[in-house]
């Protein structure tokens, strides 16, 4: 009996194979062809001199050596971590304040909730354009504004390149972080707060002992995904500060972009991008294992 039912189950499983194949095939084919094959070939190509109309030449670890010895590459990694390292705490702090503000039904909180996400709809190219006009030395609004207080104009993009890309960066992503944190805040059980209030806890204690621990998973997820996203930023650097000023805002992706578009150094770009894969892939793996462990704990 048991054997028979097992066998019939197996039969159903085989019958399902064709249906499942039809469901999966388009996505599976496209992913293998346009992601996995290029990924594997990028590992191979990293050992070659990549030409377009000629045969590639095997060069071993030559380009690994070039990238490892290139100060600009290490500098770009430092720039990316500096950028993300300042941006994320500021953005999360602001997002928490705004989320706490709109969580209660206050005058204007609905309007904030529906407009805060607007900057997320804007591309890095357009945001970079707007902010390069706002931050400009001679015509910039910001310099006009500080001029009202008698401060001499500051060449922001020249003297404070990092700040010049941080401001638009924070502005661009704030809405998403705020709304996800808001959703997390709303999921914290209300009776926790009521119980704490009975015990005489103040709102600061409640925030650090109830809100933060309850939102731990949401926060870690947001933190790692936004770290991965911000380490890959290049559009703001390209549009606002450029590659000038000793590469003070040249992030790894912008470094790779320059190798490809201006210097035509494909192999070096491939090696640098593989090193980025190691960093970012590790971050994604952490997110992924986290999501899995969370599911099993449910």
């Amino acid at each position: 009996m048991n054997k028979q039912s097992k066998r019939s189950k197996r039969k159903i499983k085989y019958k399902n194979d064709l249906t499942a194949f039809l469901f999966i095939f388009p996505a599976f084919f496209l992913i293998c062809f346009f992601v996995i094959y290029p990924f594997i070939s990028s590992i191979f190509l990293s050992f070659y001199d990549v030409k377009v109309y000629e045969e590639n030449i095997f060069v071993g670890f030559k380009y690994y050596e070039i990238v490892f010895k290139d100060k600009n590459f290490w500098r770009s990694l430092g720039v990316a971590f500096e950028y993300a390292g300042i941006l994320i705490p500021v953005q999360f702090g602001l997002a928490f304040l705004i989320a706490l503000f709109i969580k209660k039904d206050r005058l204007g909180s609905k309007a904030v909730k529906s407009t805060i996400y607007v900057p997320n709809m804007i591309s890095g190219i357009v945001a970079g354009t707007i902010f390069s006009l706002i931050l400009a030395y001679d015509s910039g609004l910001l310099n006009k504004f500080i001029g009202l207080f008698g401060i001499d104009p500051i060449p922001f993009t020249n003297d404070m390149p990092m700040l010049s890309i941080l401001i638009p960066g924070i502005w661009l992503g704030l809405g998403y972080i705020t709304l996800v944190i808001l959703a997390g805040l709303n999921e914290v059980p209300k009776d926790y707060y009521e119980a704490a209030e009975l015990d005489g806890a103040n709102s600061f204690q409640m925030f650090f002992h109830i809100t933060i621990p309850c939102m731990k998973n949401t926060l870690i997820y947001l933190l790692i995904t936004s770290l991965a996203a911000n380490l890959q930023q290049y559009e703001l650097s390209m549009m606002i500060t450029g590659d000038l000023y000793n590469g003070a805002t040249t992030t790894p992706n912008y470094y790779i972009y320059n190798l490809l578009t201006y210097q035509n150094r494909r192999s070096q770009a491939i090696v640098a991008s593989l090193l980025m894969f190691i960093i970012l892939g590790t971050l994604s793996a952490i997110v992924f294992s986290m999501m899995k462990s969370e599911k099993s704990s449910d």
Partner: peptide, 15 residues
Amino acid sequence: ILIPMFVPGMTILVP
């Protein structure tokens, strides 16, 4: 199917 989640766009750009 999940591999692309770990591969940044820049890495496969040239190939």
